[in-house]
Design a protein around this nucleic acid. Structure first.
Lengths: 156, 156
DNA sequence: TTTTAATCAGACAATATTATCTGATTATAA
DNA sequence: TTATAATCAGATAATATTGTCTGATTAAAA
């Protein structure tokens, strides 16, 4: 199975996107987020806690508490979320797993792959949450229906 | 942890690359491959067996047996190996994990990501094993030394 | 002030991936 | 023909990721 981002990371991005939809400062309980995005409640809860500790979002404890966007969507990059959850290994590791792949001793696809990774990096850095709020709303509306009985990872 | 290809896939590519280096038809025991590439012997053995059953390489049983390139390096694409081991999920799945992401209901990064994936697809399809035999030889020479005590996956 | 509803912390469970082990089968060489 | 050295098949073990549970803490509302 080849993947790009971990499930944690995917869910994290989806969750923050959802908070962005609700607008800056609007407090949303994890129950609603989990329900809407069809993500296991305790799992997304843990992820949002992690993003809270890394200051990407904020949280409010106690009754009527929940999570919220702590800063302007224009100031939150996809890159920030990816780095917070998955780290930066994707940007520095040899795609073929050669332990000492580098510019001096490149693996066969080093140059080609470097180009793709640079483009990915640029895209994640350029995309801030404010840039696609309308797209997300479409998306969110359309969730839920199809996600039932989906296996954690599709068969290989 | 974000990854692109599974360890199995990385090892598979490395192994086939090594066979390509030895030249078409040259039979190489898995012991030598594992030693040279610093991959667990039983693991790379299983992977090469899988690639054998999928006709990407050939094998010879019994004494003096081993694995070998069954066809011209020019006819083996990186794409073939990736598909054989990791499947094609990477080319069709939403990078943010939205279950019903598509052209009609795109996730926020759908268009950007599609472009990157198409480039990756094109690269894996364009790269055949004959195109970088010299680079690999450099690489292979330089292996082994640094791989000791490397964790299976780097810390997050 | 008490009840309620939320995050938070940490342990635990399930699943997937990675790695290892045992022995059967095969074919070469002695 | 027998010993040897290899793939092959299937079970098992170790680790990482994903998902769940329990209870503590917190803060608002009754």
């Amino acid at each position: 199975m080849a993947i790009i981002f971990s499930k944690k990371c995917e869910y994290g991005i989806q969750g923050v996107l959802y908070l962005a939809l609700k607008g800056i400062g609007t407090v949303t309980p994890v129950e609603e987020i989990a329900e809407h995005l069809q993500i296991p409640r305790e799992f997304i809860s843990k992820i949002l806690q992690e993003l809270t500790s890394k200051k990407i979002i904020g949280s409010k404890k106690g009754k009527n508490g929940g999570f919220f966007l702590a800063k302007s969507p224009a100031k939150i990059k996809l890159y920030d979320i990816v780095i917070a959850i998955d780290g930066d290994a994707i940007f520095g590791q040899c795609v073929l797993g050669f332990p000492n792949c580098s510019g001096d001793y490149p693996c066969p696809v080093h140059d080609n792959w470097s180009k793709l990774i640079k483009e990915t990096y640029a895209m994640l850095n350029a995309q801030t949450l404010d840039q696609f709020k309308d797209k997300v709303s479409l998306k969110i509306q359309n969730l839920g229906a199809k996600k039932k009985n989906v296996k954690v990872r599709p068969a290989n």
